[in-house]
Amino acid sequence: MSDNKVIPLEKPAEFCSDPLTELLRKGARQLITDAVEAELNVLLDQHADSKDSNGHRQVVRNGYLPEREIQTGIGPVTVKVPKIRDKSGQGVKFNSALLPPYLRKTKSIEEVLPWLYLKGISTGDFHEALQALLGSDAKGLSASTISRLKQVWEKEHESWSRRDLKLKRYVYIWADGVYFNIRSETDRQCIL
């Protein structure tokens, strides 16, 4: 028999999740699914005429790739990408333009990372900051990932700072001024 008298208390489900965020994630998941299915149907229609001697299509649906999570501005969204089977040997493959094979985070997440870095979030604190922004399920953005991204940003900045400006023309306006909000003695007496 154990002498442990500690009883773990769990938070009720209603306090752990935000119903509006869950609704948004469910809607995003459905929207992504519909868009990817439409992409697949376009590909299948392009190869509808490719048939074998028995009249069966040579390019057909063939289940789904393993489910994966995409980090979005509303937290992680699980997606399933359909697969095709090319029986003709032409090498037809389906790669969604919306969900490329190695996409793990949306563009909005990629854009917020440099902004957080410039605002002073240290590499080691990114995970905690992103959990606060994206929810506790934020994954895939470790300190080593941020360090690699930082190297990319530094290279981009270096190439940007060395770009050729000879053929560029910029118009600018320089304005300088001082605004005083001083009231006279009579103005102050009227206010009182």
Rank of each mutant, 00 (worst) to 15 (best):
G73F: 04
G75H: 05
P76E: 08
V77N: 02
V79W: 01
V81Q: 04
V81F: 07
V81L: 09
P82V: 00
P82T: 00
K83H: 06
R85G: 03
D86C: 01
K87M: 10
K87G: 07
S88D: 10
G89Q: 00
K93T: 10
K93G: 01
K93Q: 10
F94C: 00
A97S: 05
A97P: 05
P101K: 02
P101R: 03
P101W: 04
Y102D: 12
Y102C: 06
L103W: 00
L103S: 00
L103E: 11
R104F: 05
R104L: 08
K105T: 10
K107G: 09
S108N: 07
I109F: 00
E110W: 07
E111Y: 02
V112E: 05
L113H: 05
W115Y: 11
L116F: 10
Y117G: 09
Y117I: 03
L118C: 13
L118F: 14
G120S: 05
T123Q: 09
G124C: 15
D125R: 09
H127F: 04
E128F: 15
A129E: 03
L130I: 04
Q131P: 09
Q131A: 13
Q131L: 15
Q131G: 13
L134K: 11
A138S: 07
A138Y: 01
K139Q: 14
G140V: 12
G140W: 02
L141Q: 13
L141M: 15
S144D: 14
S147Y: 12
S147D: 14
S147C: 07
L149F: 12
K150R: 10
K150E: 14
K150Q: 13
Q151R: 06
Q151Y: 08
W153Y: 14
W160K: 02
W160M: 11
R163N: 11
R163S: 13
R163P: 07
R163I: 08
R163L: 08
D164S: 00
D164M: 01
D164W: 02
D164P: 02
K166H: 04
K166I: 13
